[in-house]
């Protein structure tokens, strides 16, 4: 799910608005109850069937053993979780996912920040660069995979060609475990850049120019200004994009499926890909359900953190 940058801005204000509205409450109308059913009904139905029910069902399945068609057979309590959290294989997936998520987040934010910083300068024709830097926003997962699969291709790829020209050793980008992880990370970061850049650019542009003018009078270097004015002033937005990037990275599936299929030797077998494989290839629905619940717990934690940070922005 994409998060709107606009909502991040409007959310804090709404806290005050809600208070105002409860003060000027319109008379409680008995008819409202029926209208509420009409207005809320469709959404409630869809969410119940495709979000609430499956979550409860997943939780339920995770406490059982299941047969090959996914029907629960024997209640086993937490034993699915225990066997997962003691399995070296699952822990390695968890570790791989963590490394990937944090690498993606840090690199996306760092590069996005560099792009946004240079694109925020008032130069002639800067609009063109702003547009170009945001371009990866229009690139969907399978297109990105094609571009980068060609670059990383072992025989005819762009990088292997460069290596040949420069007489460098060839790297098996998608066959070496470490290199495959790097390849998937680079591709994800590249895909994220456009969106991150646009949000960070907006934040940098909204820093009051008087701050920089004052710093100029003091003779502060651009580097000093960037570290001591820009970064602190945009820190709420930095947190916001970091968490969105983090959550999206935890849910990565498409690129993994398109580029590495979790391999080589499970080096990129991340949480969602694993759920898919365990459920739909191995037919181990109980274990996949327990994995789903663990994933949900991780994402819920970070989403909650995101709400908390956004709340703080009210006081900012």
């Amino acid at each position: 799910m994409l998060k709107s940058p606009a909502s991040s801005q409007t959310k804090p204000l709404a806290v005050n608005q809600t208070k105002q509205r409860t003060k000027t409450t319109f008379a409680l109308n008995a008819k409202d109850k029926y209208y509420a059913w009409i207005f809320l009904g469709p959404s409630l139905l869809i969410l119940s069937v495709f979000i609430f029910y499956p979550m409860i069902k997943t939780l339920y399945l995770s406490l059982f053993l299941t047969n090959t068609v996914g029907k629960p057979t024997v209640f086993v309590g937490l034993s699915n979780y225990i066997s997962l959290l003691t399995s070296a294989d699952y822990l390695s997936s968890l570790g791989v996912t963590m490394v990937y998520v944090f690498a993606v987040t840090i690199l996306t934010i760092a590069i996005g920040l560099v792009l946004a910083n240079y694109a925020s300068k008032e130069l002639a024709g800067i609009g063109i660069f702003r547009t170009l830097f945001s371009a990866t926003m229009g690139v969907s997962v399978s297109v990105a995979a094609i571009f980068w699969l060609f670059i990383f291709n072992p025989s005819t790829g762009f990088l292997s060609l460069i290596s040949t020209w420069l007489h460098l050793p060839q790297i098996g980008w998608l066959t070496d475990p470490t290199a495959a992880m790097i390849a998937v990370t680079i591709t994800t970061v590249w895909m994220n850049l456009g969106f991150t850049f646009l949000i960070l650019l907006g934040a940098i542009q909204s820093v009051p120019t008087t701050l920089y003018e004052a710093a100029n009078v003091e003779g502060a270097s651009p580097r000093y200004q960037f570290l001591h004015i820009t970064i602190p002033m945009i820190s709420p937005t930095l947190f916001f994009v970091s968490i969105i990037t983090l959550i999206e990275a935890f849910k990565s599936f498409g690129l993994i499926d398109l580029m590495t299929k979790g391999g080589p030797t499970n080096a990129t077998n991340m949480l969602v890909y694993r759920i898919y494989k365990d459920a739909f290839y191995s037919g181990n629905f109980a274990q996949a359900s327990a994995e789903s619940i663990i994933l949900t717990a991780i994402i819920a934690l970070f989403t909650w953190l995101q709400f908390k940070i956004l709340e703080k922005r009210v006081n900012y």
Binding site: L28, P54, M55, A279, I299
Partner: peptide
Amino acid sequence: LKFKYRNFLFGLFLATMMLPFEAEIIPN
């Protein structure tokens, strides 16, 4: 609209934002 359980239902809507669709593919 003013109706019973409005805040509860809104909280429920908010809660769904924490639940990744990717973790619900089996029952779905």
